[in-house]
């Protein structure tokens, strides 16, 4: 082996310790940053005033209205994290917490300005609600985000109509409702409710008197429901509902 080659090899071997040291430092910093990002959603739980009277917002309810734990979700149909929650966590929430009578679950539209077709999606769901199929449309919208979202099309009416057809809705009635935009007031009301409650991102959940930003796994969701069960049952959206009913009169 030549002198230059021996020098190069010696240099590489002498670099091993600092190399491993730098790799460890980068790994620790990277892992800490990811860990922070992952736990941020549960760390940002804030206590909110359960007695804030609601505006004209009207969430979509599933479960017994007087269930011991009141849950509100503020979500945008085009938001990927909302889609993940709706498709992965929510089915378990419904079967294990809503259908058992523990949770009353309300969905509020929170259309974000950067999503071009989210208003159309909220409108589609509201019109499906008129025919008693809000939750079916809600689930289908989240499961098919890439078919109708702002990046897939600039004319969402066509793919949304296809979803309505898939659900077996009365298409003529649904299309008439969709085109009239008669539910935009309700959607706007729900959006205003999110802003009034200082919702910063989607999805955001209010479980009992805790506000949690970001998608949740079922275990995380259940832990907050258990916590709400222990502390203040029936405290969250009742005043909101009462105010809404008052506004309707």
């Amino acid at each position: 082996m030549g002198k230059a080659a021996r020098q190069a090899k010696g240099k590489k071997q002498s670099n091993a310790k600092p190399f491993i040291g730098i790799i460890i430092v980068v790994t620790v910093i990277g892992a800490a940053a990811l860990g922070y990002a992952l736990t941020r959603s549960s760390a940002t739980a804030t206590t909110v005033d359960a007695n804030i009277p609601a505006g004209p917002a009207e969430g979509y309810l599933i479960g017994k209205a007087d269930a011991p734990v009141q849950v509100s979700e503020f979500a945008d149909y085009e938001c990927p994290a909302c889609g993940v929650f709706a498709t992965l966590t929510e089915p378990d929430v419904r079967t294990r917490l809503v259908e058992t009578g523990t949770v009353a679950y309300r969905f509020y539209d929170f259309p974000l300005p950067m999503h071009k077709n989210t208003w159309a999606a909220s409108n589609a769901a509201a019109c499906a609600s008129d025919q008693g199929k809000f939750w079916e449309m809600h689930d289908l919208l989240f499961a098919t985000q890439d078919r109708w979202n702002g990046e897939a099309t600039s004319n969402p009416r066509k793919p949304l109509t296809e979803l309505a057809r898939q659900l077996g809705l009365d298409l003529k009635t649904w299309e008439s409702c969709f085109d009239s935009k008669k539910h935009y007031g309700r959607i706007k009301g729900n959006q205003a409710e999110a802003e009034r409650r200082m919702v910063q991102q989607t999805p955001t959940f209010i479980i009992g008197n805790k506000m949690l930003a970001g998608s949740l796994s079922f275990d995380q969701f259940k832990a907050w429901v258990d916590s709400a069960l222990k502390s203040a049952p029936k405290a969250d959206t009742k005043p909101a509902e009462a105010a809404r009913k008052g506004a309707e009169k």
């Binding site: 959603s41 994290a81 998608s215």
Partner: peptide, 17 residues
């Protein structure tokens, strides 16, 4: 690796925003 993992976790819904 960490940068791409961050974006992947967001895409999979584990990071809210």
């Amino acid at each position: 690796v960490f940068l791409a993992t961050y974006l992947l976790l967001y895409k999979l819904g584990y990071i809210p925003g």
